[in-house]
Design a protein around this nucleic acid. Sequence first.
DNA 1: GCTTTGGATCGGTTTTTTCTATGTAATGGG
DNA 2: CCCATTACATAGAAAAAACCGATCCAAAGC
Lengths: 311, 311
Amino acid sequence: MFHFTLKQLRYFTVAGELSSVTLASRKLHVSQPSISAAIQQIEETTGLQLFVRHHAQGLSLTPSGKQLLVRAKQLLREAEGLEQFAVSLSEDIAGELRLVAFPTFAPVFLPQLLRRYADAYPAVSLLCHEETQVDIVKGLNQGEFELAFTYDLQIPVNIDFTPLHCFPAYAVVAEDHPLSGRGQVKLAELVEYPMVLLDWPQSREYFLSIFETLELKPQVAYRAKSLDMIRGLVANGFGFSLFNTPLTTDKAFDGRRLTALQLEDDVRPLSMGLACLKGLRLSPAAEALRDLALGSDVTAAVLGHKGSKKR
Amino acid sequence: MFHFTLKQLRYFTVAGELSSVTLASRKLHVSQPSISAAIQQIEETTGLQLFVRHHAQGLSLTPSGKQLLVRAKQLLREAEGLEQFAVSLSEDIAGELRLVAFPTFAPVFLPQLLRRYADAYPAVSLLCHEETQVDIVKGLNQGEFELAFTYDLQIPVNIDFTPLHCFPAYAVVAEDHPLSGRGQVKLAELVEYPMVLLDWPQSREYFLSIFETLELKPQVAYRAKSLDMIRGLVANGFGFSLFNTPLTTDKAFDGRRLTALQLEDDVRPLSMGLACLKGLRLSPAAEALRDLALGSDVTAAVLGHKGSKKR
DNA sequence: GCTTTGGATCGGTTTTTTCTATGTAATGGG
DNA sequence: CCCATTACATAGAAAAAACCGATCCAAAGC
């Protein structure tokens, strides 16, 4: 494919600039025949005559050699730049950091966290996707993302999970729902009413499994594809729903009000945390974000301690 | 200096794009361990983890790997470009062609020749200097110029000279000079009048040597550094002068007229031609100009056969 | 004519690259 | 559950290359 090497180009450019094979060999700490050979190899592969040899007094570039020299130096600078870039990627907190987050809680606390991160490490360009659990796992595996904020749900063995915060499940009903104002309810009471279900691959199964462990079966009246839609449906009396992500507002988008109800049953809370590939050494940029997230209770500031920290 | 090679980068990028060491090895016609090794070497020198290895099902780039891949491909493209450039320099009539010409006759016929050349080979960017003989020789030796249009005067042995045209020396006087209208004169007659001398390193000696061979000694009344000045001085009655380059106009810049006088003596005419370094293989661009210059009597068209072709 | 200079060439050594063969871990079909 | 398959890693040997010291050679300068 390539008929010359960076090393040959380097030897050539130095010799060209010094107009001397010997001086170049000294400057580059290699023997004089090495430089000679490199130049001849380039001359051979390109078919160009790069130098006019003056016996006993060095050599001088031919016009062709001069033209090649300019472009060769440019290539060498760019190679140098690539190397610098690679080193900086592996040593500095810089480059691109590709994140992914579970969409239900992403907007709740990520904006604040990313703000703090961006202030602390301006050399990093952040990229944050939102995907459902299966796509998060797929994306991590394929190197699409380096770090994921997600729930500890169906995490495969090859993915490391570090819990950040625990979210207990709770019920949400419309303000004018018969159970509203109760403060807390039993799941057995809830199943008497129609349910609105978040219809996402893993979430679906998770919410239904909560009832299954108590051998209850909710009447799913509606399935919706977004959290906002669920809130709206619930607020408009289509039934109750179960959430883990805290309600940060008691209003649906149309202004109707919702009420949260604690569950009296002993339901396993969901653990939210940071996931990344087990085999992957994190970049300094990712490491920094991980430290930032672990170092401070990121959710507390926003949520006012509605959940319990860690698992 | 550089801790990776173009070959390693190439192996890496192909493997990265195919997400497979094996496929890359097939595509590049090398063994699979070679690819593996190259990737590991880059990982080692940069300190980056480029791939996540999935047992039995290929590998996928890490986010860092993806970033490096993009820039590595760019560098490879640029290397490819450099190679193309070099090959084109040695095979195509393209690139930069650095010329130099002796200033006295350069404006007489070079513009027309270069025009034809530029029309025929638009991929070549022409650069034409004008220097006196010593600087022409120096420039050729140092690779400053590839081809020179000059006189066969004091040409060192390491420079090849191909004659293009012969210019006999002739005298020039003002229109109102006593010798004007004679048509031809003897040098012995000329020395009775004051002379105006072109004061350039080699030209000076050449003109004086013409008199010396006949054991004559001209009275040099004025020395000037440019041909235009000489013409003006002669036209204004400061004396006669000797030229080789044909007078293409009988007017000086101030409008005063000049007359050319043939020499009756047997003076060796000056040979004008193409000079280039003996050790230098000409670029296709230079070769093309040489062919163009040799192929047609470049001067005839302009001068109307005032001199004799070739030597 | 002798010395100096500086690139080219020659052999031999070391290093790097590449290959074949094999190991190994995960996947998938029966 | 076993076994064949897949695909990367590793080991060891062979081939290629890069490199070096020594020497050669041509020109320049004293």
